[in-house]
C-alpha cells in the first residue's frame, strides 16, 4: 500500500518535471520555421513557459517541432532524426503542411502528413500558425504530459 503511493507520487513528480522542462530541437523545415523563430524571439518569448533551451542535436532534445512541409526526400531523414532522440520524446506538428500536406497536398513529392513518419502528439492548424497558436500547443502538450496522455 505505502509502496504504491510512493511510486505514484514519484511518477507524478517525473511527469510534472518532464512537462516543465521540454528541450525543443532546432529543426526548421519551411515557412512555419520562421514563425517558430518568432515564437522564440523577443515579442513572444516562449522561454516563459518552461521550454527554453533550443538544442542543436537530436540527442539532447525531447521535443521535435515539425515546422513545415515534409517532402518525400526529407521524410526518411526526419524519421532518422526522431529515432536519434532520447526518450521521452514528443512531436508537435506545426502548420497545415506538416499536419496534412497543406496547399501542396496535390503535389508529387510531398508527404501528406508527418503522422505517416513519426507519431504526433499535438497538431497546430494554420498556414502558418501564429506564434500564439504554437505557444498554445506547447501548453497543451505540457498538460498532456502531466496527465499522462502522450504517445511516448
Amino acid at each position: 500500500m505505502s509502496d504504491s503511493i510512493l511510486v505514484t507520487s514519484l511518477d507524478e513528480a517525473l511527469k510534472w518535471g518532464t512537462g516543465k522542462s521540454l528541450w525543443p530541437f532546432t529543426f526548421g523545415l519551411a515557412c512555419c520555421a520562421i514563425e517558430m523563430m518568432s515564437a522564440m524571439g523577443s515579442d513572444y518569448d516562449w522561454a516563459r513557459f518552461g521550454s527554453d533551451v533550443f538544442r542543436d542535436s537530436p540527442r539532447h532534445s525531447d521535443l521535435m517541432i515539425v515546422s513545415g512541409t515534409v517532402t518525400k526526400k526529407m521524410a526518411p531523414r526526419i524519421r532518422r532524426l526522431y529515432d536519434q532522440m532520447a526518450f521521452p520524446k514528443f512531436v508537435i506538428s506545426m502548420g497545415a503542411c506538416a499536419s496534412a500536406g497543406g496547399p501542396y497536398v496535390r503535389g508529387y513529392s510531398v508527404v501528406d502528413g508527418v503522422d505517416q513518419v513519426v507519431p504526433v502528439d499535438v497538431y497546430v492548424y494554420g498556414c502558418p500558425p501564429r506564434p500564439e497558436a504554437l505557444i498554445q500547443a506547447l501548453k497543451m502538450l505540457q498538460d498532456r504530459i502531466v496527465a499522462g496522455r502522450v504517445k511516448h
Binding site: 515534409v70 526526400k73 513518419v117
Partner: peptide, 25 residues
Amino acid sequence: MDKKQYVNLADDGEDTVSFDRGEGY
C-alpha cells in the same frame, strides 16, 4: 500525377525510390 512514388534512405545515405509503399514515405 496520381501514380505515387515512395522514397527511402539506404544505409549508405543515398535515396531509394519505388512505386511500392513498403518502407518508404
